[in-house]
Design a protein around this nucleic acid. Structure first.
Lengths: 189, 189
DNA sequence: ACATACATGTAAATGGTTACATGATTTA
DNA sequence: TAAATCATGTAACCATTTACATGTATGT
């Protein structure tokens, strides 16, 4: 649903091939939006058909080609349109909360260890988000640098801080969840 | 993925027909997990085939039948197993954060109004969650009362508080998000 | 008599995940 | 020369959403 626009947003920084996008959505972008390769390649062809991106065939080596896609001005317009379009919050669908709702029917030990494992997973994420947030504030991520290269310097600080603020939310939200898990563990006794 | 177990958990309170479950997942349960009718009916037949629930045909009026499903002891076991099974946190996929990540490319007015509308939606949810939380603490929801009826009284308080605590999380998390939206609006200028 | 609620079903489409498949190029 | 990385593709499956379809019972 949002993947097409996620791709447009990434390509605004610089042109990329399907392979590069796949790696990006599996590494850095993974912390905000993920997509497997099988979703990316067909979508790139669709976005090109819509005129929002253009692919340029590049020759590497003897017979290895790769297609580098760049954002068109129609694509940038579409991105701007989508950004100000009303956001419809999806229905809540949180598997952990669903379990917690029935924890009184479970063995307390088992329920506690589900929460403990979850806390570890969240702490892992927090540390990666924190590192990325610091890098954004320092304007020290490869993609952000390429992005800022074609934007006026007067806007650089605002752009970096807006992006870093997104990661601040991810961190705060995970920390709230960690506290909640610990409280629940206490209640389970 | 979690819907089968959500249904088992609901049926632990009391037997219900597909129609009742549909209404429940569209009203009260909506605030934790939603499911449309088209998902529920086929799933009930599957859960019965698995032996986790049993349907009892009831005759209402002349030729109107309805099937009331109740949890079997195998179903209760399966619910217990699922509750203590490791929870795998799904990938982050938050459409609002994705927009926010690119808000520097959008008209500031438009971006702000997306956030303002979102705040209204969240406030709406908070008020419904709060009401439900209060009802749970007071042990004053129809389903909770039926649930407590077949549980020892010594456990009643713990059960009610555990459930209410889930709603506390939903509320706190939405309030954090509201604050973040407001901060972002300030940053947009 | 008409509208609303009760009751159950199917079909089509979308979005996402996992797995399979193929082959070239680079690096150890 | 073997393993890792580059590069692109398809197929099958699962969960979810939206829409269509049908008929009965009840309350106004």
């Amino acid at each position: 649903m949002s993947l097409p626009h996620a791709i447009l947003g990434v390509l605004e920084a610089r042109p990329m091939s399907g392979y590069e996008l796949t790696r990006f959505f599996d590494s850095t972008a993974r912390w905000v939006w993920t997509a497997p390769q099988s979703q990316i390649y067909p979508l790139l062809r669709k976005l090109e058909a819509d005129g929002w991106i253009v692919g340029e065939e590049q020759v590497r080596g003897e017979r290895l080609r790769r297609t580098s896609y760049s954002l068109t001005s129609a694509g940038l317009d579409e991105l701007g349109r989508w950004l100000t379009e009303t956001y419809a919050e999806p229905n809540v669908r949180d598997g952990l909360l669903l379990k917690a709702l029935f924890f009184d029917l479970a063995d307390a030990e088992g329920a506690s260890s589900v929460l403990a494992e979850h806390v570890l997973e969240l702490e892992e994420r927090v540390s990666q988000w924190s590192a990325h947030r610091v890098a954004l504030v320092a304007r020290d991520t490869p993609l952000l640098r390429e992005r800022l290269d074609h934007r006026p310097e007067s806007e650089h600080e605002r752009i970096a801080l807006l992006k870093a603020h997104v990661f601040e939310y991810l961190i705060d939200q995970a920390e709230l969840r960690i506290r909640w898990c610990r409280d629940t563990m206490t209640m389970l006794g």
